[in-house]
Design a protein around this nucleic acid. Sequence first.
DNA 1: CCTCCACCGGAACGTGAGGAGT
DNA 2: ACTCCTCACGTTCCGGTGGAGG
Length: 401
Amino acid sequence: MGNGGLGGFFENFLSKDTVFSEKKALQPSYSPEEIIHREMEVKQVADTLAPCLKCEKPSNLFIYGKTGTGKTLTINYVTRELLKAAQKQETPLKIIYINCKLKRSTDTEYRLLAQLLKFFDKEVPYTGLPTEELYKLFYGVLENEKKNVLLILDEIDYLVNKIGDGFLYNFTRMNEVTFSNLSLIGISNDVTFVESVDPRVRSSLSEEELIFPPYNALQIQDILRNRTKLAFKQGVLENGVIEKCAAYAAREHGDARRALELMRVAGEIADRNNQQKVLINHIDEAEEKIDRDRIYDIVVTQPKQYHVVLYSILSLYSTKKNIIFTGDVYNVYKDCCSKINLRCLTQRRVSDIIAEFDMLGIINATTISKGRYGRTREITLGMDVNVLSRIKVFLENEISV
DNA sequence: CCTCCACCGGAACGTGAGGAGT
DNA sequence: ACTCCTCACGTTCCGGTGGAGG
């Protein structure tokens, strides 16, 4: 690129060599026609849902499995086929898929219902109505519809954590209250999730259960081979790349999604370096890059108060040892606030913020006891040095100290 | 064995911004 | 204009607690 101008950057971009032929085959949203190593699960889901076709209500279904074990893929595949079959024989059927973790759309009971009503072309205001009112609306809609309705709640554990399990009770009882056939399909990453749910709800929610085991390294290799055949040009993968990638992903817990992401990023790195092949060490680079970007993105999108708290932690980290306590953080934070004229939060709140950072994986905070000297959180940073300095620069800028 | 520190973490409540209905 | 919703983000209050030191 020349001075100021893009100097044909886009032309270059378009004509530039790339190792990809169809990159979207590596995207998480990509839905292949063929699902490998999940034949059993596909069949079981299909068995459970099949009564739809005879206008009978299928059992509620509960699916567990860690991330990247093909849960969403399987359910989407089966419901797609189911819908085709239903349309062919003109059986009324409505399938609603909601991913509860997708930003904001469903993190309260109200919003969940609003979202659902939207699927039935009922618009409701973002806020304002009593939640009870939305339930009534929803009941009404269900009765009108006179269809089998499959409600798929992906990442349902996340939702229940946020808003409690009360809504599940209402949903599982809906068929008693209305003349409708609503079946719930819950998908959860957290295997211990059901234990935390109210027993009354539990039994009806998991009339059928299905556990998706992690893929092993060999299975991930198969999956990668399948997808890379589409995604990459022929012969651009160095020998051993797939094996390495699979090994990395299997090391965690057989997360196929991560494996695909690694592949994609490795390819992008190869492109950027103008290399015609994806090499084994690109996988290593990709892994680092994914981690770095994730953390940086999370930090950047936090609100100001969070930035100041994190800034306090980081500046303590560079002046002191690697172990920091809540009290220290709060003191530095207070100083910082008065310097930059920011409303100072209570320690209680800051404590929560620190806990949130821990949950986000930005810092490690464990509560420990120092005996005579009280109980507190012990904060350490497990961050890569590169990310750390990048974040620091960002925060210093943002806070402008 | 008991005490007591320096916080943790639950719960209730307050505020102010969104909006509906009347 | 007024009352009623919900929700995000905080505050206030307070009981709870692991373990070093007496």
